[in-house]
Design a protein around this nucleic acid. Structure first.
Lengths: 338, 338
DNA sequence: GGGTCTTTTGACACCGGTTACCTAATTATT
DNA sequence: AATAATTAGGTAACCGGTGTCAAAAGACCC
């Protein structure tokens, strides 16, 4: 023990009467060690309360033990779910989770990301949508030798680098569910333009309508931006139509709840007068009244797997699933039209 | 350049024709260097795109560049706000933010925290409530030599180790506001027992009532747990009373919104029949209808300052503010009683 | 009992920086 | 002009681990 401070590998080696390399072998569970030596060293490690210094290991191994989640300030619940999933994935390992937000609208966006990767040199990064579909950032990861996994709604890379959900099919199922209940005038509140997941959700909507032989009325497709306010605004437009819809599919829960509020303000009852379906299955969706029928988005599972893909070998990562099914959760906001 | 990989301090030294120590001095902005040497070395650093290896620095300096936020899975919005504040605080520095959740109900809680601190050895930790009031964890920080800042609602340590809000006064103001509007039968929905912030909020409620010479009717004080559901349940009880309250103060927004839902289900109009005040000023509070009058909780500012306290010297930390005022935000859920 | 093949272990350099200490050069002092 | 005081910069050891490679210790065989 070097006077004060934590014991180091040298202290352990001295106390156990072996070389530090041997202690290193014990730490790393090297197979070429006699059982007796291993036990002896393990005993000393326990007695001294030795914990290997990750910084030193990082330097020697030329890799650290940091998984970084890189995001563009998404919805709080989404971000927390991703963090929770990653934490589940790294639980029991030596890895730690670093979280780093960026502003994609900042002209320095790319150089900021580069600076982060070069400075912290995380072992791997989880790219949250919509950054996950930014090829420039992916190129940056490759260039800096950073392992990465992209979270998204379609497969946009090799399986080892992707975890995604089948939003399109899930939305198709959800809208088909509405059609099955007897709805014909079904509105869509879209997500922000230029991103993958809203596009997929829209495609699912259109596929369901087409499958049922229903035309998509352009008046019933309203833009949105995944925010509560945009849900309110979209629903207000829809309710003002001469022939308002009998059901609304909102591309996320937040907009769905915005739509619910707009309906309530307008005196339109849910679900009697209008059915509403959301997407995400945030806690909020079971907190509103009536509870929101929505599509469960398996973010936690996706994030957990993303972390596992980063920690394992490239081959192992390819073996892990990259597709996670989103499934409809029926609650109280959908009934047959009057 | 060692073949491949990033350039190291040795590469820079060789290219600039100086010793690595001189390069180190440039990196660390040491004052004892001639301007000409400095410029020469800086030029080489730029040309080579040299970025110092944080792992190596961490090892040599015996300290790393990680601020960890330690929490017990609080509300998503709160957690994200704290993260945002810390990110603001460390912006432009070499520090990174690591986020680590723990489960206080797990019997291994303390040893888990210890393992984290010993393994990652973060330079400093921000303790989120309610962990921030756990003296065992604080003791652990001291023992492991980890700098810490506690987020809370009262000063529970030296100024250098605390950022807090004056919940008590803010609640007193909020309830006095209700009284000023003419309310007399005011209900309180409490937060979970055994934590500091709910206690403070309750104290503020009682102080306001006492100042106005009003008695606190025990029937109008309902327990809660900061969750939406507990807000619903509490409000249901209150509305079922023979003499229901004309106003409700809920100890956080989530419960306030639960209470709003319960009122709506019961056919009680807000704010005509009952006024409601929350606490936190989450985005949600302006997303409901009517918008929620609530107390703004300056979490982002607190977290930013917490990070600054951790990064600076102990003395500098003591100079930074430790108290951040919570203030009432008047929105649409309060009017005079009928 | 000596030689050969394995298995176990250690010596030493190295990862990329920093600190402590020292030397050489420059400037100030007398 | 000689000496002291500053300043600029270099040398070598070290932070706490890991990789390489060779030596030491057993196991096995004749």
């Amino acid at each position: 023990m070097n006077g004060a401070g934590k014991p180091t590998i040298n202290d352990v080696a001295a106390a156990a009467g072996v070389s530090k390399k041997t202690v290193s072998r014990v730490i790393n569970k090297s197979p070429l060690l006699s059982a007796s030596t291993r036990e002896k060293v393990e005993g000393v490690i326990r007695d001294l309360g030795f914990v290997p210094n990750l910084q030193a290991r990082a330097l020697a191994l030329r890799r650290n033990f940091i998984i970084a989640a890189i995001h563009d300030n998404p919805n709080a619940q989404f971000l927390v779910n991703v963090q929770q999933g990653i934490q589940q994935g790294i639980a029991g390992s030596e890895f730690g989770l670093m979280v780093q937000p960026f502003d994609r609208s900042d002209p320095a966006f790319e150089s900021e990301v580069r600076a982060f990767l070069e400075r912290q040199r995380p072992f791997g990064v989880v790219l949250l949508p919509p950054i996950s579909s930014d090829e420039a950032i992916v190129a940056l990861c490759r260039e800096t030798g950073t392992r990465y996994v992209r979270m998204g709604s379609i497969k946009m890379d090799e399986a080892a680098h992707v975890v995604s959900s089948n939003d399109r099919e899930a939305v198709r199922d959800a809208v088909t569910h509405l059609i099955g209940k007897g709805h014909r005038r079904i509105a869509l509140i879209e997500g922000p333009e230029g991103f993958t997941s809203p596009q997929e959700r829209r495609a699912g909507f259109e596929e369901a309508m087409a499958q049922a032989g229903l035309a998509v009325d352009p008046a019933l497709v309203r833009p949105g931006s995944y925010t509560f306010e945009s849900g309110v605004a979209a629903a207000e437009c829809l309710l003002a139509l001469a022939a308002p819809p009998t059901a609304i599919f909102a591309s996320n829960d937040e907009m769905a709840i915005g739509a619910m509020i707009a309906c309530r303000r307008a005196g339109v009852r849910i679900p009697e007068d209008i059915s509403i379906v959301g997407f995400d299955d945030t806690p909020l969706s079971s907190h509103v009244w009536p509870t929101l029928t929505t599509v469960h988005w398996p973010i936690v599972d996706m994030a957990r797997t993303a972390a596992q893909k980063l920690m394992g070998s490239e081959d192992a990562a390819g073996e892990l699933p990259w597709m996670f099914p989103s499934t409809l959760v029926e609650r109280g906001s959908v009934v047959a039209p009057a």
